[in-house]
Amino acid sequence: MEATIEVSGLRKKFGPHLALNGMTFTVEPGQVTGFVGPNGAGKSTTMRVVLGLDAADEGTALVGGQPYASLRHPLSHVGALLDAAALQPSRSARNHLLWLAHSQGLTARRVDAVIEQAGLESVVRRKAGGFSLGMRQRLGIAAAMLGDPPVLMMDEPFNGMDPEGIVWMRGFLRSLAGQGRAVLVSSHLMSELQDTADHLVVVGRGKVIADTSVRELLSAASRDRITVRTTTRSEAMTVLAHAGATVAATGRDTLTISGLPADRVVALLGESAVPFSEVSAHHASLEEAYMELTKDEVEFRAAAAEDTTEEAAR
């Protein structure tokens, strides 16, 4: 089976709300594909449609070229982590994995293997109800890995993870892609996917806004921009703006300038005797690139701003 997810023209209405409006993208093997968009953009709905849990009004969703419902031991084709809290609280973590394994004709030995993989050995006999969200995410990962599937699909797997867990999760996702598997990871926070995703599918209002590689996106967002580090920020802003540049204060002592080449910026600041410590080509963060990409989407900007605040509050 080819390790792909192909989503084509999905439309779905929940009552009057159009949840999916022609969602179309393909997840390729060997890379981590970030599935990004604000809450309510249709990420989870798309994933449920791929897994055959929700029926789309129109369109198709194929896993390795087949509809999910036709798979006989589906966990050997796709490993999915939809909702880490979907557990029977009084059942132990190991028993949760055990019934899943039994449903696929897998043995307890495979259960022990994924427990080790997810780093859950010490807690696996405990009731899942007592798990922190981070531990539940790891349990969900273990469940997704049971069938050793070529395709993995995870909805907000970073949620509730501590920094150590986030680092672990990034490494884990990268290693899965490195083995040639197709990995689709959704997030409403672009920053979570920094250094993780190779490819991005950016969605809003139930459809794809951008389907691009991370490298292309970053270079597009960084183009023609210059970062200036200065202790006299306001004076530098005045000088550069006067010369026709677009200036944005991006930090206590940093400015991002566009509309002027770097040598011209250095010359202008020198002429005006404005001290500066650094002028460099700007390296956009994934988040900036995301903002740039979605600046025309009104709904997006509000939501994205909220998310940024949320992140800042962490």
């Binding site: 449920r48 897994l51 055959g52 849990l53 999910y68 419902a69 036709s70 798979l71 589906p74 966990l75 999915a80 939809l82 909702d83 809290a85 979907a86 557990l87 029977q88 609280p89 899943l100 449903s103 696929q104 469940a143």
Partner: peptide
């Protein structure tokens, strides 16, 4: 109903689409 309450039914039906 315990499966519905926790959305565990999704895991069940993902494991067995039939």
């Amino acid at each position: 109903t315990a499966e519905y309450r926790r959305d565990l039914i999704r895991t069940t039906l993902t494991a067995t689409p039939r």
